[in-house]
């Protein structure tokens, strides 16, 4: 279930400004990849294209062998719901819902796709316990710390047991201790569940803990290296 970028380009605006230039590469299932580069290098844009949130100007993305530009809209939503988990720099939790209810938001939608969700509430609770949030399931996001909020967001991204976890600077709004906790959770998810993790980060230390690093410069791959001894994996 690899992800393949095939001649991927992306432009914005009129006149068009090209942000990504003809990128082709493959990420193997179960890999842990860090996308790095300076601000404006196109790493977040690439992440959203790989994660089926955005569409390329040219080229295409293959997820598990399926060309994302050729699937129906309904199928695209199903992929976002069941195959992909997203973690953003900000937690984007729904403030009206408790921690557990936030975690279970994708599960509510999965019912529409005919998924048997009977076991997912238990999984949601287990994830919160695993992420050190036991006893805080009923709390509203505003009653949680920044680190706790981000852990709830990660639990939400993982509740449907997605094949791919995409993270856009997940530690960017956290202090180093909480950042460390988040990266550990990613490492654990990758190693225990076999989830493919693709993470955009500015932090060289966290990037070094990925199995593979793709560094972008001005929308082109400047470096694509496999970390010989990723510190956390």
């Amino acid at each position: 279930m690899s992800i393949k970028a095939v001649h991927l380009s992306k432009s914005f605006g009129e006149p068009a400004i090209k942000v990504l230039h003809d990128l082709s590469f493959e990420i193997q299932a179960g890999d842990f990849v860090a996308l790095t580069g300076r601000s404006g290098s196109g790493k977040s844009t690439l992440l959203y294209l790989l994660g089926a949130l955005d569409f390329p100007t040219s080229g295409h993305v293959e997820m598990g062998g399926h060309d994302l530009s050729a699937v129906s809209e309904r199928e695209l939503h199903r992929i976002r719901n069941q195959n992909v988990g997203f973690v953003f720099q900000f937690h984007y939790l729904l403030p009206e819902l408790s921690a557990l209810e936030n975690v279970l938001t994708p599960v509510r939608k999965a019912v529409d796709f005919g998924v048997d969700v009977s076991s997912f509430e238990t999984r949601g609770r287990e994830l919160l316990v695993r992420f050190g949030l036991e006893g805080k399931e009923g709390r509203l996001p505003r009653h949680l710390s920044g680190g706790e909020q981000q852990r709830v967001a990660i639990a939400r991204a993982l509740v449907m047991k997605p094949k791919y976890l995409f993270a856009d600077e997940p530690t960017g709004a956290l202090d180093s201790a909480n950042g460390e906790v988040v990266i550990r959770l990613f490492e654990e998810t990758n190693s225990v569940d076999g989830t493919t993790v693709i993470m955009v980060t500015h932090d060289t230390g966290f990037a070094a803990r990925a199995r593979r690093q793709i560094r972008l410069v001005d929308g082109r791959i400047a470096e694509d290296i496999v970390n010989s001894a990723p510190s956390g994996v």
């Binding site: 949130l53 809209e73 309904r74 939503h77 199903r78 992929i79 976002r80 719901n81 069941q82 997203f86 953003f88 900000f90 984007y92 939790l93 729904l94 403030p95 938001t105 994708p106 939608k109 999965a110 796709f113 939400r156």
Partner: peptide, 16 residues
């Protein structure tokens, strides 16, 4: 808008 974005990113459709 942020909540709408997250809902859309986890599979919620335009109609939802």
């Amino acid at each position: 808008k942020r909540e709408i974005a997250i809902l859309r990113s986890i599979g919620y459709e335009q109609g939802d």
